[in-house]
């Protein structure tokens, strides 16, 4: 690939832990995590819809957090733990969300689906960790949820949180239903990632913050 090593290196040896398996190879610095997965590791489950972070089809979990893999240079993520749609389940056992998507017919063409699934797994973890969204009511003023407590995934919450994943087939209502079905067990979800060492996941919240916020 690169036969011009007399110049400063424009490629590097990069290790990516994908779905629990380390992959080490010489990688063009321009190669994104998305292209590394699709073109070099043969993991084509992660999709390229826009290549600019504007559609969410390439969403994967990096250290347990959802991210647009099209905007990540692989070289900048040497050593990272990535979970793709192929690794959502546990071995032969599918992630319940995958079955819920089939059951609810939460897709048509299926192209945005892997990104929707990874994003949804991220949403469940984020909500469980108490991360607010644009539509989360602030604590206080009749809102009993203390800051940092898990956020109940209402349909409005799911819709807002899943808005980074465009579905041109318009399967949103069914996607929302499928995720809502998972919401009950959100507290038990770990982000779907089998990250172990080095996994950051969704950070917990610092303690010592007054429970009733005033604004």
């Amino acid at each position: 690939m690169d036969d011009h090593h007399t110049r400063p290196a424009t490629s590097s040896t990069v290790t990516l832990h994908v779905n629990g398996t380390p992959h080490t190879q010489t990688t063009d610095h321009r190669t994104t995590v998305l292209d590394l997965l699709r073109e070099h590791l043969g993991l084509t489950g992660t999709k390229k819809g826009c290549d600019h972070g504007q559609c969410g089809a390439c969403t994967v979990l990096v250290e347990g957090r959802r991210a647009n893999s099209c905007l990540l240079f692989a070289v900048a993520h040497d050593g990272a733990h990535v979970t793709t749609v192929e690794g959502l389940g546990e071995g032969e056992r599918r992630h319940p969300l995958q079955d819920a998507f089939v059951e609810r017919d939460a897709f048509q063409c299926g192209y945005c689906t892997p990104g929707q699934l990874c994003s949804a797994v991220g949403v469940l973890a984020e909500a469980a960790a108490g991360h607010p969204s644009h539509v989360t009511p602030p604590p206080g003023a009749g809102e009993p949820r203390p800051e940092g407590a898990p956020v109940p995934l209402t349909r409005a919450e799911i819709r807002e949180r899943m808005s980074g994943n465009i579905c041109r087939c318009g399967a949103y209502p069914h996607i929302v239903e499928a995720i809502e079905e998972m919401g009950d067990v959100a507290g038990g979800m770990d982000g779907g990632a089998r990250n172990t060492d080095g996994a950051r996941g969704v950070p917990g919240n610092p303690s010592g913050v007054p429970e009733e916020a005033t604004r």
Binding site: T59, R65, R66, A67, N68, L71, S133, H134, G164
Partner: peptide, 11 residues
């Protein structure tokens, strides 16, 4: 929270 998307904000 009014900007971008959840996955973009994560990064």
């Amino acid at each position: 929270l009014a900007g971008a998307s959840g996955q973009l904000r994560n990064v």
